[in-house]
Structures are given as C-alpha cells and as structure tokens.
Design a protein around this nucleic acid. Structure first.
Length: 281
DNA sequence: CGACGCACCTGTGCGC
DNA sequence: TGCGCACAGGTGCGTC
C-alpha cells in the first residue's frame, strides 16, 4: 500500500519519535515479515539497549540506524505501518514492537504481512541504496535524468516506472497519476515518448509525490489515506474509474498492465497503432 | 531479457 | 444474513 510519499511521511514521523530514544526491549512475532536470517530471538537481541542514531528512506525502504553498527531494514509492503501505542494494549495485527526507555511503545502493524523486517549491519545500507534507482524526492528528477533512466526500453512506460531499479519509490498510484499529468498512455512503449512528454512526466512524477506527501503531512500522526473513509479521494484519476476526466470530461477507464489496474483518460492519454509499432521496432 | 501467472497474506466490499 | 469472488497502494519466483 505505501508508496514513496507514505513511506516518507512515516520516516519523518519515526525521526521525530525516535530522536534521542533508546530501545529497552524489542519483540517480533514469528511471522513471514521477518526476512533473511532474522528471527524473533535475533531481532530482540540486536535491538535491546540500542540508542537510535538516524533513519533514512530510499524508495520504499526505511533504514534505521542504531549504535554499535546495528541496522533495521523495514519495508512496509502493502499494509505495513509503524505507530506509537496509545494504550497498554497492542494494536490488532501488531507483528513487532520496540519498547522505548521513556515508556512509549512503537508497534509494527501489518495486516497482510507482505512487509519485511530484517536486522542488517548498518554497513549494508549502502548496498541496499545501490540496488535501487534514484529516488525522485531525495535525488531530484529532471527530463534529462528521466530520459537516461528510461533508456531505449520498448516496455510499457508504466512497467518501466514501476521498476524500482529504474526509479525508486513509485507504485501503482503515483505512476497512474504521473502518467495522467503528462497525458501519456500507460501502455506507451517507453522508447516512443517524445522529449516533451518525458519532461512532462518528470514534472508529473514530482508533482504527484509532493501533492500526496502534502496530503499526508496534514496529519501529524501516521494515518493512511485509506484509513479515513470519510476523506475525499485526493487523486485525479486513481480510484475514479467511471468518473469524468478532470481535464476533458470523458469517463475514466481502466486496463490491466502487469497485473495492476491502470486508470486513465481515453482521450487525454491516447495510444496509437503507430506508437506500438515504433516501440517494437 | 521480458511478459506472465502465481505465490505470499488478510480483509473488505459487492453481487447473488 | 451468508457465501463466494474479486480486489487491494508490493515484491519475487518460476516458466515459457
């Protein structure tokens, strides 16, 4: 569920919460969330008594650094989140928890357990960062850079943008919104985009990330948009199939690409036979 | 290399 | 009211 803006929102919240904090005790349940060699026992042992030294986010990865060279890599998957406990009782679907010296408890909550927690040496953070493409928010993005990343790939632009080694942090919503901004059909072969379209896409990527982040930052706490069923849909086309395109009024339609729903405007985001032919050739 | 299905998981909402 | 199914903002594997 979380994409770059949600993960950034979490990173900022965790930075505030953990500033100057020490972990007295840590627990993780035996669930598929624990990856690699991490077990409930090694999770507890690696984090007990550690003081927090920093957090960085790259793409959808959260990397927490502690003293003594210890690190915690946290990927939220579809439904993961960190939250500070309000009462004594742990939240539903809590999978791990950090008991801070000042009495607060930080819970890792993950309904579907598609997220990941892994104890890794801080020294390995660089390798994780290196395995991902540039992060639009951290590293910036412009037309030239995006063109270089897309390269000559004839794959659908949507598939390319979802590839975390091309750009880090984009997910189905952000890609959907960015393509709408740039008026580019999700199935357009990446190598058929004009320089103007690539420029518009770079702009669209940054615009949708900043917009989504701003919506999240209205909440001090870690709250997901989907938590608030009362809140209006903040997106232009995502979640709006059948509604009128905000630009031209034509109903938003959807197709499936790489197994993901891809809402788009059939008029603003055209795909021609010639595009497909040029992409293959 | 790339497209595709499937697996990993649970919860929710919708149609019958 | 209940059941079954499709679907959900992610990733990684095996297979053709």
């Amino acid at each position: 569920m979380p994409e770059l803006p949600e993960v950034e929102h979490q990173a900022r919240a965790l930075r505030r919460i953990l500033e100057g904090a020490t972990i007295d005790r840590a627990e993780a349940d035996r669930t598929p969330v624990l990856k690699g060699t991490t077990t409930p026992a090694s999770f507890a042992a690696a984090l007990a008594g550690r003081s927090f030294e920093g957090i960085e986010r790259v793409g959808k990865q959260l990397l927490l650094a502690f003293d003594g060279g210890a690190g915690l890599a946290s990927h939220l998957g579809m439904t993961g989140r960190w939250r500070v406990r309000a009462g004594d009782e742990g939240p539903r679907h809590g999978r791990a928890r950090l008991f801070l010296r000042d009495g607060r408890v930080l819970d890792y909550v993950d309904v579907r357990m598609l997220g990941r927690l892994e104890i890794v040496p801080r020294a390995s953070f660089a390798a994780i960062v290196a395995s991902l493409g540039p992060d639009p928010l951290r590293d910036g993005l412009d037309a030239e850079r995006l063109a270089a990343r897309i390269g000559g790939s004839g794959r659908p632009i949507k598939t390319v943008l979802l590839d975390q080694t091309v750009l880090a942090g984009l997910g189905n919503i952000q890609v959907t919104e960015a393509l709408f901004h740039a008026r580019v059909h999700p199935e357009r072969p990446a190598n058929t985009l004009t320089p103007a379209e690539i420029a518009a896409l770079a702009e669209g990527i940054l615009a949708t990330i900043l917009h989504t982040l701003a919506v999240h930052e209205r909440d001090e706490e870690i709250v997901y948009l989907s938590d608030r069923t009362d809140a209006p849909n903040p997106f232009l086309v995502y979640g709006r199939v059948g509604e009128a395109c905000p630009r031209c009024g034509k109903p938003i339609t959807t197709i499936t690409i790489a197994g993901r729903t891809s809402p788009h405007c059939p008029r603003c985001q055209r795909l021609t036979r010639s595009d497909l032919r040029r992409g293959r050739g």
